[in-house]
Design a protein around this nucleic acid. Sequence first.
DNA 1: CACCTGATGTCAGTCGCTGCCATCGCGTAG
DNA 2: CTACGCGATGGCAGCGACTGACATCAGGTG
Lengths: 188, 188
Amino acid sequence: MGRWEPDARGRLAKAALELYSERGFEQTTVVEIAKRAGLTERTFFRHYADKREVLFAGSSALQELFVRAVADAPESAAPIDALAAGLDAVSEMFADRREYARKRQAVIMANAELQERELIKLASMSAALADTLRRRGVAEPAASLTAEAGVAVFKVGFERWIVAAEERDMAHLMRDSLDELKAVTAGG
Amino acid sequence: MGRWEPDARGRLAKAALELYSERGFEQTTVVEIAKRAGLTERTFFRHYADKREVLFAGSSALQELFVRAVADAPESAAPIDALAAGLDAVSEMFADRREYARKRQAVIMANAELQERELIKLASMSAALADTLRRRGVAEPAASLTAEAGVAVFKVGFERWIVAAEERDMAHLMRDSLDELKAVTAGG
DNA sequence: CACCTGATGTCAGTCGCTGCCATCGCGTAG
DNA sequence: CTACGCGATGGCAGCGACTGACATCAGGTG
């Protein structure tokens, strides 16, 4: 075994999340992750660019989903409403992954390096959203600001969803957060 | 010499920025930085936690200035106006450091690891601002959203200032960006 | 002049990460 | 059925970031 067991990538991701949860990110070596997955350190780095990236395999799919929903919003929709459509789409995606999301988020919140990686993924999402808004005819700096605002709403909404009771729907928390942002920016 | 030359910290920071500019962040080793500063690698790590941190020595002062300005805004001011006061204060700080800011930003924009570090500094600023707003009586999630929005405006305004002609005043760009955000969030 | 203290130097060691080449298992042409 | 090709994996050497432990030095103090 080891060689030729299927889904080496998945086994590495699973082993990494387990070990990061059990003893922390810093206290885990890549050799240990690879060993638990029945592979070697060298193979780990063939599947993931670095020790952090193994926790962010799904982030590109999330970004694509978000961007597509914004791009597909009716042409008549205001930028902020196109964004709301994106937040809806994203919320669906997480609906049945709450436990996984919680476990993963706990690991990330416990380590600064992992937070850095999370932040740059969100920045990439913001850039992609801004690009999409520009294609919809939104000028700068409105496009970048709207995108940044959208990511801010996502961050706050996501965090509230993670700590919320099981029943709380992510889409509702996202909408509430967006409304709060509207209220506070209108307050001046 | 080497030992007992004054301002070892400053010499290290200067040498690092020079080398990162000349040949790039990745292509520069800590040994080289230390050597140019007339010191050793070990001493570098006594002054800076890691190879990236040497570019972010001033970020805590920036955060403190921003936070204090928000905290000192008139109690009657709406959260978004307290934020605007913070952006004003920050703009003053940068007024006579444009060349340095440009050089530094060019280095950061050329490397993903440095962007990660920059992002976590901004996230720290957002958290500190949210805390300050809470002390001013703003509830969650409005406090966090306002803080995130403030940092978004800072990011966009700063970027525009970096690329703008010499005459453009940073404070004006910040105000414009804030107004744009207000417009776009009111558009739904 | 002896002593103390903080900053620096020296050295060994761990770990993340990469390049290079060998090896393995499977599919496929012949 | 066999030989060959190919993608995935292993093994190994090496670099650079970073750390802990200990020695050393310059300057101030008694």
